[in-house]
């Protein structure tokens, strides 16, 4: 692990019952990079995110975030060390407005704490930050709509917004463009490119055009192990990757 490592995974293991799902994953994710994790369905990509963010407990291994050992911390503590995430299955606050969704996501960063004696409108910068994010997400006209009433692509966009607004230096995105149309995907990619600015992005993605568009490093996860890791060119040429991707995705990769 070097100075420059945002997230270091050391020999992570996780089983559900007798089934080993993550079987010795080690990865160094460079600070400021966009690191894509690809792999077939059921490879354990989401499980890996759950382990990193404290949603699931590790069986074995160690996780460092910018040098801090975050192994075994609960999700809110992991967040406080500077790591945010989005979910593969959209996870919003359905009855809160779009504005309120984003504001809740920005509260920790704005040092709101658990205050119950001070109006939430009175925190310097919080309101403006939410308005900026609304603009960036192109959701300003929808700011007062409850999240439950948004269209699917809008919900996915808000999902990304919740991960980005909290000021984390490392952001894990689990299939941010899943279910989006071509045009919506392009908008989301542009958004990520614009907002990433110096932060570390870790991206699980099935859409390989998105991967090759954004990522500077790609790791391939198959059956709970990293079978290849490197620059897009290296991974593209890797025989093991081709084997793991036998089927439709192989053509995309070529």
């Amino acid at each position: 692990m070097t100075e420059n490592t945002a997230l270091a995974l050391e020999d992570l293991h996780k089983s559900f019952g007798a089934t080993a799902i993550i079987r010795g994953v080690s990865l160094d994710i460079r600070a400021g990079s966009c690191h894509a994790i690809i792999g077939p369905n059921g490879a354990g990509k989401s499980t890996l995110f759950h382990l990193i963010t404290g949603r699931l407990k590790l069986d074995r291994g160690r996780i460092r975030l910018a040098g801090h050992d975050i192994t075994g911390l609960s999700p809110h503590r992991v967040f406080r060390h500077g790591l945010a995430r989005s979910f593969q299955v959209t996870s919003l606050f359905p009855r809160l407005s779009v504005f309120e969704n984003l504001r809740v996501a920005a509260m920790w960063q704005a040092r709101c704490g658990h205050a119950y004696w001070r109006s939430v409108a009175g925190y310097p910068g919080l309101h403006g930050r939410v308005l900026d994010m609304l603009e960036n997400l192109h959701l300003t006209p929808r700011r007062n709509v409850p999240a439950a009433a948004l269209a699917y692509a809008e919900q996915r966009t808000l999902e990304i917004g919740l991960a980005l607004i909290g000021g984390a230096h490392t952001i894990l995105l689990d299939e941010p463009t899943a279910g989006m149309s071509r045009a919506e995907t392009e908008r989301a990619v542009a958004l990520l490119r614009r907002l990433a600015g110096g932060r570390t992005l870790v991206l699980i993605e099935h859409d390989l055009s998105v991967v090759f568009d954004l990522a500077d490093t790609i790791s391939v996860l198959a059956e709970g192990q990293v079978i290849a890791s490197g620059s897009p060119q290296t991974v593209r040429g890797d025989a093991a990757v081709r084997a793991a991707y036998l089927g439709t995705a192989a053509e995309d990769l070529a």
């Binding site: 963010t53 949603r55 609960s74 999700p75 809110h76 967040f79 406080r80 945010a84 995430r85 979910f87 996870s91 919003l92 606050f93 359905p94 009855r95 809160l96 309120e100 504001r103 809740v104 996501a105 509260m107 920790w108 960063q109 709101c112 704490g113 658990h114 205050a115 119950y116 004696w117 001070r118 109006s119 939430v120 409108a121 925190y123 919740l162 909290g166």
Partner: peptide, 28 residues
């Protein structure tokens, strides 16, 4: 009523809607 407009008030609504997500936004 005033409490509903404070950070805790809004977080309370968020926890009602989706406690899991609140956990990933820095709050227990």
């Amino acid at each position: 009523w005033a409490i509903t407009r404070t950070p805790l008030g809004r977080l309370t609504n968020a926890v009602r809607d989706n406690p899991l997500r609140v956990d990933f936004l820095g709050y227990d």
